[in-house]
Nucleic acid binder design. Structure first.
Length: 896
RNA sequence: GGGCGCGUAGCUCAGCUGGUAGAGCGCCUCGCUUACACCGAGGAAGUCGGCGGUUCGAGUCCGUCCGCGCCCACCA
């Protein structure tokens, strides 16, 4: 590829340091990105340039806490977008000499994977089923799907999950590699792998020892389809149609009141009635008991500040449990518990007249309730409304308990973000991490982190301030990290929840359903006086909130942990500030009273061209692979890099096109510059020095921008410089001098040196953004010349590159050269002659000051404009820096 | 209802600490000038969302309103 001497006139010169030219004919006419991408990917993997060196000190290290993508999610342009942002920083830091730690993990445990596996194989997990070692699963056919899903054991189910996630991870990895992410693949992990399991369980042991995690039996937000507890962070409000139902209650001792409810199906679960203490309409009833219609249950009437006199009728029924406020009233007023909604979302079979279900007319109550028992909430609501139309059900004798018709409304209802039916509050035993009592510390630690852009901290702050419950970390699922706990069983086989048995840290990871706690034998499992395993698993965030510690091998390798924790940078999406960022900060606070990282860079999300957020649920997601095919990896990265952090960005193919065009331009400019040959000599000519001075200023600004995570303005500036100061101007102005075949041309070597400096520095400035094309051009000459095979291991441009280059004699000479040249081109355009047409003669008019600073660059301007002769005319009426072209005479068009 | 962000040429966006509007794409005109026609030169195009205010001067600061997006809260 290195053609030794392409200019025969120089062949006999003695040995001197030379800028060797390449033979442009040895390069393809057009840049073939697909070939280059494959070649450089292979070269990078074979080299060690992306590898973290544990021997180097912490101060030289830059640690990235890479987001582990949800492996079972589909490839999304948003991935390409935000992961490119991270790679920009990684590549920049590496070029500044940092020892970059850039791992990749896969978040494979959790509900998304389970759902995908259930659908793909058409199976369900039955924890009681025995393991089938030879079970072969295959993708379910349409015919299979007509049958009920196959029940498989928990280990079989987990195997199926692992199989599917392995495949998903392969496609993600292929995408990352295609994009050119400079990941050190030796640090790949899965949140379900043994190391992550160990660290998650180790975290639990540490929290337990510190008294920060405990199990509680309490009403918990519950998804009735997944039959699983849900944390506050996973809630989502959805607008749903509903209706106010006005229902008349009797008051014990005489009187009637009408409550308004959207959940008439919970009437049987009513345990109280409340109104605002200042509400004159109801003040007289406080302390008495109300009698529910249909079921004739007496319930206390009490005053509560939380009741809003403006809403409904101002008085409402408290049920176990209609919503979060019901839970508060139930606790504060020590109301009865009548839990009717079961874990599966159906109403329990209960007997009025029995303990806890007193009724003034049990027989009638049971007759009504019989129609509701076993029904799901939606069905029960319809039936309840009909029952309430029965005058015989009235508690007062005033006719049907339902007063008037239901009044339709639209209201927000809490859903599990991945769920299909509204959440219910169901009393269950769950593990909680204490967070509420650490609110102030969480705010302080969050503020210690530098947020990019800064206003993203506000989201964290709002979330933390509004936190209303501790973190429920137990999940009634299968594919995840087991909670490492057993419970002793007493003589009657009851679990003693107060004295859980924890494993030794050295034994981790454990699966309590198969491992046996110390001091017990396997035969004692589920036996009286034996032990019983916790079957729940952790919330997936419990593990992924430990990604910095997973990478640092916390608890296993103290030296490595000290070197990698806390990390420098957490890149992530704005949608998971309340989960991933929040929980990670919480874990680092509770475990180490530390921040998990010093910086957090929050990317915006991707919208479709109609400005709608691109998301799976909206069905407007496109796969990024065709974009890579069409616009090249560098072109796609260009699009991602041109968006500032935190800014939502439209998927606009025009921007990809610009990126691809830039790649082509770099290819061609590189080809031209490196085809020029000359002695290696200092940069001496005025124009060359003026260009170098401009370039130097660009370098200094670029470094500042990158250090403050401002990659988008940086790219814009470098690109604009490349185009307007390099290819369109300097390169054209210096071209003839650089190509001069006269060995005595003193400026030739200076021009070639400056062109090479320009290309060299610009390649390095572009390298984080466009790793493939920059590496390609770098490889043609600089790799050998600088004995640095990869531009990505080359130093980030700095003052060093400009050492020994004198400042231009006139600070404005570069601008004046360009302005004068453009003025001549404009004269040609006005005369409608081609830009290449020779100029017989012309007069350049400008004020004396401008003409003076043009002097040093005049010959280059005249050569570029193809002027054979010229005159200078001082004209003080022309403003500084402007030129007028007069008396231009153009040569006749010549052939050839 | 609260918070955050945004509203600049047809489109996508840039405009730092206030000083008389910028880029690319698209459009129109011209040009094959041996790095590049995946190019170059030139041109048309904006009352910087509206209204007030501060200032000698505001896209840039303050207030207010309108529109868009996102987050949170509303669940009787």
């Amino acid at each position: 590829m290195l053609a030794a001497l392409s200019f025969p006139g120089f062949a006999g010169l003695p040995e001197r340091p030379r800028h060797r030219a390449i033979d442009p004919n040895s390069l393809p006419k057009h840049f073939d990105a697909a070939v280059a991408e494959e070649r450089w990917h292979a070269a990078w993997q074979a080299s060690r340039i992306y590898q973290y060196d544990p021997a180097r000190p912490r101060a030289d290290t830059f640690v990235i806490d890479t987001p582990p993508p949800t492996a079972s999610g589909s490839l999304h342009p948003g991935h390409v977008f935000s992961y490119t942002h991270t790679d920009l920083v990684a590549r920049f830091q590496r070029m500044t000499g940092k020892n970059v730690f850039y791992p990749m993990g896969w978040d494979d445990n959790g509900l998304p994977t389970e759902r995908r596996v259930q659908n793909y194989f058409h199976i369900r997990c039955d924890p009681s089923a025995p393991y089938e070692p030879d079970l072969e699963l295959h993708e379910a056919s349409a015919k299979d799907r007509k049958e009920p899903p196959r029940q498989v054991s928990r280990p079989n189910f987990i195997e199926a999950c692992e199989r599917v996630t392995r495949e998903d991870e392969r496609s993600f990895k292929a995408l990352w590699q295609r994009l050119g992410l400079s990941i050190d693949w030796r640090h790949e992990y899965q949140t379900i792998d043994p190391r992550s399991r160990r660290i998650a369980q180790y975290s639990f042991l540490d929290l337990y020892a510190k008294g920060q995690v405990e199990s509680r039996y309490a009403p918990t937000m519950w998804d009735v389809d997944f039959q699983c507890a849900v944390a506050q962070a996973e809630l989502e409000d959805r607008e749903r149609p509903g209706a106010y139902h006005d229902i008349e209650f009797a008051v014990e001792g005489g009187g009637a009141l009408v409550i308004s409810t959207t959940r008439p199906e919970l009437l049987a679960a009513c345990v109280g009635v409340t109104a605002h203490p200042g509400d004159a309409r109801y003040r007289k009833w406080f302390g008495k008991r109300a009698i529910t219609p249909l079921f004739r249950v007496p319930v206390p009437i009490f005053a509560s500040e939380k009741a809003d006199p403006e809403k409904g009728t101002g008085i409402l029924m408290v049920c176990t449990f209609g919503d979060a406020t019901d839970v508060e009233w139930w606790r504060e007023e020590r109301l009865a518990l009548r839990q009717l909604v079961l874990r599966n979302g159906r109403l329990a079979a209960v007997e009025f007249g029995s303990e806890g279900y007193e009724s003034l007319d049990p027989q009638s109550a049971n007759r009504y309730y019989a129609q509701l028992a076993g029904k799901n909430v939606a069905q029960a609501q319809k039936i309840a409304v009909e029952l309430l139309r029965d005058p015989a059900g009235s508690a007062t004798g005033n006719g049907p308990p339902l007063r008037g018709e239901p009044k339709p409304i639209v209201h927000a209802v809490k859903f599990y973000e991945k769920g299909d039916r509204p959440l219910e509050f169901v009393p269950t035993r769950q593990w909680f991490v204490r967070l509420l009592e650490h609110r102030e510390a969480l705010l302080a630690k969050g503020a210690e982190v530098q947020w990019h852009p800064p206003h993203m901290y506000k989201r964290y702050e709002d979330w933390t301030r509004n936190l209303n419950s501790d973190w429920c970390v137990s999940r009634q699922r299968y594919f995840g990290v087991p909670i490492p706990v057993w419970y002793p069983l007493d003589a009657s086989g009851e679990r003693d929840y107060a004295r859980p048995i924890l494993p030794d840290a050295a034994a981790l990871p454990v699966d309590p359903t198969t491992d046996v706690p110390r001091g017990y034998s396997a035969e004692q499992r589920e036996q009286p006086n034996g032990f019983s395993a916790e079957v729940d698993i952790f919330d997936t965030w419990f593990t992924s909130s430990l990604t910095p510690q997973i990478s640092s091998h916390w608890g296993a390798d103290p030296k490595r942990h000290a070197a990698l924790f806390p990390a420098d940078l957490r890149p992530q999406g704005q949608d998971i500030i309340r989960t991933w960022a929040f929980y990670t900060i919480a874990k680092s606070l509770l475990h180490a009273n530390s921040v998990p990282w010093h910086h957090i860079a929050v990317s915006g999300f991707i919208t479709d061209p109609d400005r709608k957020k691109m998301s799976k649920s909206k069905g407007n997601v496109i796969t990024p692979l065709p974009l890579l095919d069409e616009y090249t990896a560098d072109g796609v990265r260009y699009w991602a890099a041109s968006a500032r952090l935190g800014v939502d960005t439209a998927l606009d193919e025009k921007v990809f096109k610009i990126g691809k065009r830039l790649v082509t331009k770099l290819f061609n400019a590189g080809k031209f510059v490196l085809a020029q040959e000359a002695d290696a000599a200092p940069i001496t000519e005025e124009l060359d020095r003026a260009f170098a001075a401009r370039l130097r200023a660009l370098v200094l600004r670029s470094t500042r921008n990158f250090e403050s995570f401002q990659h988008a303005p940086l790219l814009q500036e470098v690109e604009s410089f490349f185009w307007t100061h390099f290819t369109d101007t300097y390169l054209e102005l210096a071209k003839l001098r650089a190509r001069s075949e006269d060995p005595a041309q003193a400026g030739r070597a200076s021009a070639v040196a400056a062109l090479r400096l320009g290309l060299d520095v610009l390649l390095r400035l572009f390298a984080p953004f466009l790793p493939f094309i920059t590496e390609e051009v770098w490889s043609w000459a600089f790799a050998a010349e600088k004995e640095q095979p990869s531009v990505h291991a080359a130093p980030w441009p700095s003052e060093v590159d400009f050492a020994g280059i004198a400042d231009p004699a006139a600070p404005e000479s570069f601008d004046h050269a360009v302005a004068c040249w453009n003025a001549i081109l404009k004269a040609k355009a006005d005369a409608e002659v081609g830009m290449g047409r020779e100029v017989e003669r012309l007069a350049i008019a400008a004020n004396a000051k401008t003409l003076a600073s043009l002097r040093g660059v005049l010959l280059d301007v005249l050569a570029a404009a193809r002027c054979r002769s010229h005159a200078l005319a001082a004209d003080e009426s022309i403003s500084d820096g402007a030129f007028a072209i007069r008396d231009a005479v153009f040569a006749e068009r010549t052939e050839g």
